[in-house]
Design a binder for these strands. Structure first.
Lengths: 204, 204
DNA sequence: TTGCCAACCTAACGATCGTTCGGTAGTCTG
DNA sequence: CAGACTACCGAACGATCGTTAGGTTGGCAA
């Protein structure tokens, strides 16, 4: 599996280590703001050594974005296949939100980098990632249009963007070692499903 | 009567022009990715001239962020004062969403820069903007907690983040010269207010 | 043992960065 | 007219950037 599931042990070597520390630095400091010398320091190497594993700084970022988008796409299709055909719309939504969140927390820097780093990535790198991003976006749009068929195209887009805004920001404040990711998913879905309108006769 | 429009005409000079072109460049290309030479080119100046108006590149960014946050904060309080005390929760929400959106489209680069540029701004600049950001965030949290008193603190935060995600992303796809900003606000509020659940039979 | 190759190193390259210094026009004041 | 001030400019500074050239090392294969 390309998905990084190793714990960040000191035993990690070479290529994988570069990828992990670079992803974290790109996420927290930004792409242009992170120099190869900083990456090399964090990976306990010299800058030149990075070029033994990657063609360029751009290629390194490109691979990081690939890993991240692959992780969430895999999570999405896995959630879909685990759902029975009799699942309600809300159950489908919750399964996919939980899948996205789990992928987000399991591969933090790789997936989260898409939110913050992508917009400012060099044009070449950005262009290479666009098809994967569009594909993932389409998966969500498709699912949402099925479970909420009454929504217009603007409302559909806004719902997706609002949902992504809530999910992706969670990585910045939610402590997944304390709280349950499934509970978080339930809260997100619950809020989005019922809306803000005063509940007339809700249970619990 | 003299025309007092301050549209971004070619007649714009010096300081204001630097601010506007820099804000647009920071928004589209990123802070570190935009050099002072690029800004100077866009403002039809030489790089050294910028230092006649601003102490440093950081100071320039700091002022841009200030302008943007001031615009949305002003829009928020203006919307609140225009509301009568008998306004429903939904009317309050809609007025503030419309205010935020109008401020966003009127000062595009300045306000939008907060979304994309702020996270990677130099630590000093970021620290200087944090209080204003927190203040604006608190305005929304406070309002949301009043119009949806049933929400827990996590749900409240998620609602705010989802709302911001929807509103702030609009700047990237909504054409405010064609569609009405008020209609957009209505769509956002409608979606968030009623939720995704199949509507039972309520009137508009 | 010899040869090879992946992994890493030191040292330096040219380019670009933010910034500074010392000017020069134009305009307003007295 | 002299002086001051605003707005801008040309040219350069040191620092840092991504990148490359040319080693050195250790382990495995034959």
């Amino acid at each position: 599996m390309a998905v990084v599931e190793k714990s960040p042990m000191q035993t990690e070597h070479g290529r994988d280590r570069i990828l992990r520390v670079a992803a974290n630095l790109f996420l927290t400091k930004g792409y242009a703001e992170t120099s190869l010398r900083t990456i090399a320091d964090a990976a306990e190497m010299r800058p030149a050594s990075i070029y033994h594993h990657f063609d360029s700084k751009d290629a390194l970022l490109s691979e990081i974005l690939d890993i991240g988008m692959h992780a969430v796409t895999t999570a999405f299709t896995a959630a879909r296949e685990e759902l029975g055909s009799e699942a309600t719309g809300r159950q489908q939504l919750q399964a996919h939100v939980a899948g996205h969140l789990r992928a987000l927390f399991a591969n933090q820097a790789f997936t989260a980098a898409h939110v913050t780093v992508f917009p400012f990535a060099p044009a070449d790198v950005r262009a290479a990632s666009v098809p994967q991003r569009d594909e993932y976006e389409a998966l969500w749009t498709d699912m949402l249009s099925h479970i909420a068929p009454g929504l217009g195209s603007d409302a559909l887009r806004l719902t997706r963007l609002a949902l992504f805004g809530a999910m992706n920001s969670a990585v910045q404040w939610f402590d997944h070692t304390e709280g349950s990711v499934d509970d978080l998913a339930a809260t997100i879905v619950d809020t989005l499903w019922h809306g803000l309108a005063p509940r007339t006769g809700g249970t619990s």
